[in-house]
Write a protein that binds this DNA or RNA. Structure first.
Lengths: 365, 365
DNA sequence: CTTCAAAATGTAATCGCTTACAATATAATT
DNA sequence: AATTATATTGTAAGCGATTACATTTTGAAG
């Protein structure tokens, strides 16, 4: 087969005995063109192998039909299950609306912001979803507010600083509150907390709830990195105490998995001896044994919402409607998923009746 | 802050009292321009906020610096851990070489091939990595051979049909052979096989190896879907037989996890009563308890190799060197990772000595 | 102080498509 | 059949860059 040279609209139009304008119109919805010629052009295009050059279209139409996803400070978006899930939501919403998804490109000498500049000021994409890491200085993004290219941020409610860009915010309170309430209702009094970062709203809720209940004991708080190894070590430390906690709330599922292993290593059972609650509801939470009670973040939904909002913004601009998207923010909450890693507190077991049901192995259900 | 209108190269050049050519040269490596003017232009660009329009550049330079990743038949690339891992490899290699990654865009009425047509013939990307599903008719891709836009396929060695595009092939034999050999050496004779699709090289190896050893028994082969539910049900069926297998090779880690749960439900232990081997080495294989012995596929590497080969192809074309990439294919193998879900066969336990070491809980190591 | 090559800059054509506007064909109306 | 409105097509000017080629500067050599 010969190497087929670029077939341009000019060549193609000539061969059909039509003008480039007519051919162009055949490829765009709702243009003034008779249905019969459109059909003819389209079918002829198939046989001759003509496809309009996307880049030229973008230039002429002044938009790329591309959405960028950027996570400043982390080039390897696809390595983090949370970000992948987010990206998935973005991709889906983008696809539905007819937009492609562009992932981080070349690392720029000027750092992360430089990529955004190139994307936004360079019009490489029609809009950008920016996932803001916990400690990112939001102010540095202000530069991009009110540009032609819309941005939307994904942040945590507790994020410090502020900026005038619209955002989808993740509110971790609800799920954390449910988790603690769940444990307290089960009769737990010594509830540990293994966290991966010093301060966020989950930590705050933990302290508040336990103080309210009168059980707060800072010795039960352990900080570690979010790995199974970290979780395991942290749990061992907790179990080494003379009176160990009967329940532990872990800041991430990964930590929870490590904790679970540590409990087993000490010859104890989950949830009979120690209840464990995770956070994030990764795929592995459901697959672990026992299946993890955990706080679910509907991550894909966040990505979807952000993208939908972004696209709505395009439409508004196309309609000439005022953007009016600044300072707007949507909030997404979390929810507790109860599975088999939590049960009544040890001492409660002897006295309550419900216990008999709560300890039926759930895996059989 | 005012909505900032597009600053084009013309406006920008005018404001500097220079020609557009000079400005353009400042932004491209190795052009004839004095270092002092380049510096001046670049710094002025920063303060005025000028960034060259990417789309226009692409059109003029006749390349997009974008690589596409397509998985015909599956719009939701990011939902499958295997594909994510692949995408990750592609993204990394692309990033190193200065290319961005474009994911599937709008579903086309004409089906999956239509997207490829638009990408390749429409020059939306400089090259495409195509992940070919198991039963995909490779012939349909022949259309894209020898075009201006290079493609590379990621396939399984056993894939049917053929096509003239270069590819990176995944060879599953090695790992499967090691897995079976491992089990046979541990003294297992009744080795089950839970598979998710009727015929591929893993299945073939299983049959061959067991026949060789004289232990082949088709009653020990169960087919199911690749979910934990499927694995669990399949394992229950296997365990229901009068004499159950002492080891089971699962076609995917997900199945293996389900199988593991089923074994526990029957009051048996892994690996003491039943050994389990998975396949794929997903993250959860390492995190499961006991950690899964499994066949590792270095998926990211496959993606990376494919991308590197693709990019090499761009360079060759730029240098005017003949492409000569057709029919070239690289092969990537698999390898067995031994963890704690496999141990000596039950009857062997009583007689061998090594057993004492093999059953030490690995989690303590 | 010329002279000439090399370096730096400018001019203008080009990349492949879209789209406002003009021109023509078709249909509807009287 | 003439007239007008409407649907279709053609013409040509962009879109915002790059780059071959022409021109001017610069600097070294004669």
């Amino acid at each position: 087969m010969q190497d087929i040279r670029t077939l341009t609209i000019k060549d193609f139009a000539e061969r059909l005995g039509l003008s480039t304008a007519t051919v162009s119109r055949a490829f765009t919805q709702g243009s003034n063109i008779s249905e019969v010629t459109r059909e003819k052009i389209l079918s002829e295009a198939r046989v001759l192998g003509y496809v309009p050059n996307q880049t030229a279209r973008r230039l002429a139409q002044r938009h790329s039909r591309l959405i960028g996803l950027d996570y400043p400070g982390n080039a390897d978006v696809l390595a983090d299950p949370y970000l992948v899930e987010l990206a998935r939501g973005v991709q889906k919403a983008a696809q539905v609306a007819g937009y492609g998804l562009l992932l981080n490109t070349v690392p720029r000498p000027g750092g992360d912001i430089e990529l955004l500049r190139e994307w936004i000021l360079g019009r490489a994409v029609d809009g950008v979803v920016i996932v803001v890491p916990r400690d990112f200085p939001l102010e540095s993004l202000d530069y991009f507010a009110n540009r032609d290219i819309p941005c939307i941020l994904i942040t945590q409610v507790s994020s410090p600083g502020g900026c005038t860009l619209p955002s989808v915010q993740l509110d971790l309170e609800e799920g954390a509150i449910s988790a603690l309430t769940h444990l307290l209702r089960l009769g737990h009094e010594r509830i540990g907390f293994i966290t991966s970062n010093c301060s966020d709203s989950v930590h705050r809720i933990y302290s508040e709830k336990l103080r309210e209940a009168g059980f707060l004991d800072t010795k039960l708080i352990v900080e570690t990195e979010s790995t199974t190894g970290g979780g395991r070590a942290a749990m061992h430390r907790l179990l080494a105490a003379p009176v160990h906690p009967t329940a532990v709330f872990c800041r991430t599922d990964i930590i929870a998995l490590g904790a679970l292993r540590a409990v087993r290593e000490m010859g104890l059972r989950v949830p009979e001896d120690v209840s464990i609650v995770g956070h994030d509801d990764l795929l592995l939470a459901e697959l672990s044994d026992p299946a993890l009670t955990t706080v679910r973040i509907d991550t894909a939904k966040i990505g979807r919402l952000a993208t939908e909002q972004l696209i709505q913004c395009f439409r508004a601009k196309a309609d000439g409607t005022a953007p009016a998207l600044n300072n707007v923010s949507t909030c997404v909450g979390t929810e507790l998923i109860v599975r088999s890693s939590t049960g009544p507190a040890l001492k409660a077991k002897v006295v309550t009746h419900q216990n008999r049901f709560d300890t039926v192995p759930q895996s059989v259900l």
